[in-house]
């Protein structure tokens, strides 16, 4: 508690006498994360400078920052990012459009479940990247094969979680709806779908991570454009600084999108939150 900076995590207790820090604007947890990042950056910057490590292999924050600024000035960088973004969005939207309806079918029909569950589970567990060589043979080395692998990566988390969300609908709610004369369709739209939304959103969140991974690995495997392609080029040129910029861009994109979906999820779950 000696490090207590203004509001503590629960926002109530204050360390007495720490006047100067009382107006510290960040929460305790945020402060600690921020500090650890700063310390890491400082070490990363100084250790190679002191000659304890070879900057050729580790680069330095300053070098990465400069590389980032340079790349932002290069039209080709945007071209590659645009290709990757298109691949991701196309594959992801397709996955969403197919996986949600099929997930609903899976969650509501026993027969469909009996037929589809075993192959789905097998495919869910095996990474779709296993199919990358096959997809490349079928669809070529350009965008189509990446769209397909994103589709596969995103499809399974969404379908599995949509199905589970519907299957785990509260039978008491279903019965109450029935008692008011709700038919199958009304139960589906008024009970199963709203009840499954948080679970669907969770599937989407997991799918974001898998989708991003799929784009990058797909391009790394074989490609003529995209962030993964850049990684390939900079990798063989030993450009640590630029490789790290690419890594940063990819993870920032994945992180932002995941946070966005998490927000949505929290909104959807708010009716569950205890007061």
């Amino acid at each position: 508690m000696s490090l207590s900076l203004g509001k503590s995590a629960d926002g109530t207790r204050r360390a007495p006498g720490v006047r100067l820090l009382r107006r510290w604007p960040l929460r305790r947890s945020t402060t600690i994360s921020l500090l650890s990042v700063l310390i890491f950056l400082a070490l990363w910057q100084t250790v190679p400078a002191l000659g304890l490590m070879n900057a050729r292999y580790t680069s330095q924050p300053s070098a990465v920052a400069i590389a980032f600024a340079q790349m932002l000035g290069e039209a080709s960088f945007y071209g590659h990012a645009w290709v990757s973004l298109q691949e991701f969005v196309l594959g992801f939207v397709l996955a969403l459009a197919v996986a949600v309806p099929f997930g609903a079918l899976l969650g509501t029909s026993r027969q469909v479940r009996l037929i589809l569950d075993p192959p789905l589970m097998a495919l869910y567990i095996a990474p779709p990247l296993v199919l990358l060589p096959i997809l490349t043979i079928w669809l070529g080395i350009d965008m189509a094969s990446k769209v397909a692998v994103v589709f596969l990566g995103a499809f399974f988390p969404i379908i599995v979680n949509t199905g589970a969300g519907m299957r785990e609908a509260d039978p008491r709610l279903v019965r109450a709806a029935q008692s008011f004369g709700a038919g199958r369709l009304a139960i589906f739209t008024h009970v199963l779908v709203p009840g499954a939304l948080p679970s669907i959103a969770m599937g989407v969140r997991l799918a974001v991570g898998r989708g991003v991974l799929s784009v990058v690995v797909g391009e790394l495997f074989v490609s003529r454009a995209g962030i993964g392609h850049l990684l390939q080029i900079y990798g063989s040129a030993l450009r640590m600084d630029r490789l790290l910029v690419c890594a940063l861009v990819v993870s920032a994109f994945g992180y932002a999108l995941t946070q966005l979906v998490r927000r949505l999820e929290d909104g959807l779950r708010s009716w569950r939150a205890e007061p």
């Binding site: 008491r172 109450a176 008692s179 008024h190 009716w271």
Partner: peptide
């Protein structure tokens, strides 16, 4: 019904 039959 008993508790928990309201749509949350």
């Amino acid at each position: 019904f008993q508790d928990a039959s309201l749509l949350p």
